[in-house]
Simulated scan of single mutants.
Amino acid sequence: MEENHRLQVIEEGPYADPGRYRRLVGRLVYLTVTCPDLTYVIHILAQFLKKPQVKHWEAALRVVHYLKGCPGQGILLTANTDLTLSSYCDADYQTCPRTRRSLSGYVILLGGSPIAWKIKKQKTVSLSSAEAEYRAMRYTTGELKWEHELLSYFGVRHDTAIPLFCDNQAALHIAANPFFHERTKHIDADCHFVRDALKAGLIATFKIHTSNQVADIFTKSLGGPPFSYLLRKLGIRDLHALT
């Protein structure tokens, strides 16, 4: 998807065949089950099923061209993995120009390969970027609890704290600070949820530079070089590419 797109506010004329647009996007939705790189763009395109514009159809065709250019691309599950969990979370502050709600995104890796990912528009408007990032941290923590319990049923133990990487320093300070203040009153329940996980030793939070934040690919449109770089960090490879 083009960087800094304005698809949410485009009013350049409706697409002549909205049913065709709905069928295409409906098919692309199923690909997000195994293609994390499509999650963001499909999330955006699915918002215009009722009244698609011409630009929306062109953006959908751009996805088809991308898929035709890399038919063998997918998640690489390596055999020599240590089966340890790690996670990344990110938020794009007030990214929706219509509602000013933020986007939350996360990805959970098992041995360096993605096994769970999600993009979600937050239910309420965040009053700061720290609040938006902390909500993303809470969504990720909830998923980590589920994955940790699920792996235990398969006999995979995870005795150490699961790394949770975030690129927002303020959100990390809120997680580590045992005292509540005016900046956290809107996310009181989220604070308790994440801190309980920290106290229990389920997760351990770490600061990561934005350029290495792989969850960025789920919250915003990126240029070619950073997009390709984050795909490699996610363990996504093209089986048809020359080695």
Rank of each mutant, 00 (worst) to 15 (best):
C96E: 12
R237S: 09
K121E: 07
Y134M: 09
C89E: 01
W146C: 00
K55W: 04
T39P: 00
S113V: 09
S102G: 02
T219E: 13
L61S: 07
R20L: 13
E11M: 10
L230T: 13
G142A: 01
Y15L: 12
Q53W: 12
R98V: 15
T95C: 12
L164K: 07
G201E: 07
V63M: 03
K55G: 15
V214H: 03
V63D: 00
V194G: 12
D196H: 10
R232K: 02
L28R: 10
H186D: 12
I119F: 00
M137Q: 03
Y229E: 13
A161I: 04
T99K: 03
Y21S: 06
H65Y: 11
I208R: 00
D196S: 14
L239Y: 02
K68S: 13
I75E: 13
I236M: 05
G105N: 05
L103N: 04
S86E: 10
R195M: 13
L85G: 11
A91S: 13
Y106I: 08
L28C: 05
I10W: 06
F154N: 01
K145L: 15
P178T: 12
I115N: 05
L172D: 11
Q8R: 01
D92N: 15
G223I: 05
V194N: 12
L7V: 02
V29A: 01
F206E: 10
S128H: 11
G72I: 01
P71I: 14
E182H: 07
K118W: 02
P178V: 04
T140R: 01
Y66D: 02
A189Y: 11
N168P: 10
R101D: 00
I187H: 10
N212V: 04
T141C: 15
P226S: 03
A60E: 01
V125Q: 04
F180E: 08
R62E: 04
I75Y: 10
V25S: 05
I75A: 13
E133H: 11
I236A: 01
W57F: 10
F48Y: 08
L127W: 09
L76A: 14
V41I: 15
L103H: 06
G26C: 07
K207Q: 03
Y30A: 13
Q94D: 06
T32V: 13
K185F: 00
R232S: 07
F48N: 06
K220V: 04
T81P: 14
P114A: 05
E149K: 07
Y21D: 11
P71Q: 12
A204T: 08
S113G: 11
Q213T: 08
A170I: 06
F48L: 08
M137E: 03
G69R: 07
F193D: 09
H65W: 07
C35G: 02
V194W: 13
Q213R: 14
Y153P: 00
I203R: 12
V63A: 02
